[in-house]
């Protein structure tokens, strides 16, 4: 049975002792980390601490040093997120910290993506995401992006207050088949419809599928404005994106 002293990284040891109460869970995590090399533990520590620059550098160094990409994922990135999940579940950290950890994970994954590509593994799909013009609320969108990336999608994040022209430019630049729009305010919700209209005006409506979401957005409203998909949670967002890409593929094969 592995002991906490088998883990070389002091920060990881402190995190386990400080934040994991259940003995069974603690033992499971100790077992996971005890088999990880010190450099993998360092990557995991960077994830737990939400340090994207650290994770970026350490992941690059590990891959350059010959560590297999899947080992980096297992013993560095995923191991780190396992502790983040426990801390979040038990209310030691909150959404902003989780998003920082997800950003750190993305920094690590960015070095693995070229290896995936060389191995013939392409992203599930490409999605452009943004909060619509006039709206500065981004937590929902950021959680959706976290879920999409975690599910293997490539995501282009346009941030907040995104104008219809910014969405159009992004679709042209990245050739993404799906655009996800978010709004939290009833006052900015109509800007989703205006963005879709801008795509019609630019003669680009058939090039993309729109999925929409946000607290005040309903399925009826989504249908009314001409969106192709609606999700009421970040989990649904992934399913909707997958469905839309499936629809797109079928349409493309039509004679």
């Amino acid at each position: 049975m592995a002991k906490i002293t088998d883990i070389t990284n002091q920060f990881v040891r402190d995190q386990i002792e400080q934040f994991i109460d259940s003995e069974v869970e603690q033992q499971h995590i100790i077992q996971l980390y005890a088999q990880a090399t010190p450099d993998m533990q360092d990557i995991a520590a960077g994830i737990i601490d939400g340090q994207h620059k650290t994770v970026d550098c350490l992941t690059r160094a590990a891959l350059d040093g010959g560590t297999a990409a899947l080992d980096v994922m297992d013993n560095g990135l995923i191991a780190g997120m396992a502790i983040v999940g426990i801390k979040f579940r038990d209310n030691f950290i909150f959404v902003p910290e989780v998003l920082a950890c997800a950003r750190a994970m993305k920094a690590g994954m960015a070095h693995i993506e070229p290896i995936l590509s060389e191995s013939g593994i392409e992203p599930v799909g490409k999605v452009i995401m943004g909060t619509v013009r006039g709206d500065l609320h981004d937590i929902g969108k950021n959680l959706c992006i976290m879920m999409l990336r975690g599910s293997g999608f490539a995501v282009v994040d346009l941030g907040v207050d995104t104008s219809p022209n910014d969405f159009i430019a992004a679709v042209e630049e990245y050739q993404a088949p799906v655009v996800g729009m978010s709004a939290l305010l009833t006052t900015t919700m109509p800007n989703m419809g205006k963005t879709i209209e801008a795509f019609i005006d630019a003669d680009m409506r058939d090039d993309v599928h729109f999925m929409v979401g946000g607290a005040p957005v309903t399925r009826d409203f989504a249908d009314e404005m001409g969106a192709d998909g609606y999700g009421d949670s970040a989990i649904e967002c992934v399913e909707v994106a997958k469905q839309l890409i499936g629809v797109k593929t079928e349409r493309r094969t039509e004679p």
Binding site: G85, R89, A102, L143, M147, G150, S151, A234
Partner: peptide
């Protein structure tokens, strides 16, 4: 990763 993130959502 998806399972971990679903729990977080």
């Amino acid at each position: 990763i998806t399972d971990l993130f679903k729990d977080m959502i």
